[in-house]
Amino acid sequence: MIPRETVFPANRHALYQEHGYSAAIRSGDLLFVSGQVGSRADGSPEPDFAAQVRLAFDNLGATLAAAGCGFDDLIDVTSFHTDPEQQFATVMQVKQEVFPKAPYPNWTAVGVNWLAGFDFEIKVIARIPQA
Rank of each mutant, 00 (worst) to 15 (best):
P100C: 01
I2L: 12
P105D: 05
D119W: 04
M92D: 11
I75L: 15
S27K: 14
V110S: 08
R127L: 04
G38A: 09
Q96E: 11
A131G: 11
V53T: 06
Q87C: 09
R127P: 00
G38D: 08
A50F: 01
V33F: 06
A126K: 03
Q93P: 00
V7H: 03
T78Q: 13
D58M: 05
P100A: 00
I122M: 13
E46Q: 14
T90H: 06
C69P: 03
D48P: 02
G111E: 11
P100V: 01
Q87H: 13
F57R: 05
A131Y: 03
F57C: 10
D42A: 07
D42Y: 09
I125A: 07
L30S: 09
A14Q: 14
A50Y: 01
D29K: 10
A23H: 07
G61K: 07
S22G: 11
F71L: 00
D29L: 03
L55F: 00
F57Y: 15
S44H: 10
V110M: 12
A116T: 07
M92I: 03
A41Y: 12
D76T: 10
G43W: 06
S39A: 15
S22C: 14
R54Y: 00
N59V: 05
P47F: 08
H81C: 06
F71G: 00
R12N: 10
V112M: 03
F120I: 01
W107K: 14
F99C: 01
G117W: 02
G111H: 09
H13A: 10
D48V: 11
A62L: 03
G111I: 02
P45Q: 05
Y16H: 15
P103R: 04
A41I: 14
D48G: 06
V91H: 00
E18N: 13
N106H: 11
N59T: 06
A51E: 15
G35E: 13
H13R: 14
F57I: 04
V91A: 03
F49V: 08
F32K: 08
Q87I: 03
A131K: 09
G68K: 03
P3T: 08
L31G: 02
F49C: 07
E121C: 15
A109R: 08
P45I: 08
L64M: 04
T82Q: 02
E46A: 05
M1V: 08
L74R: 06
G35C: 14
A10H: 13
Q17F: 06
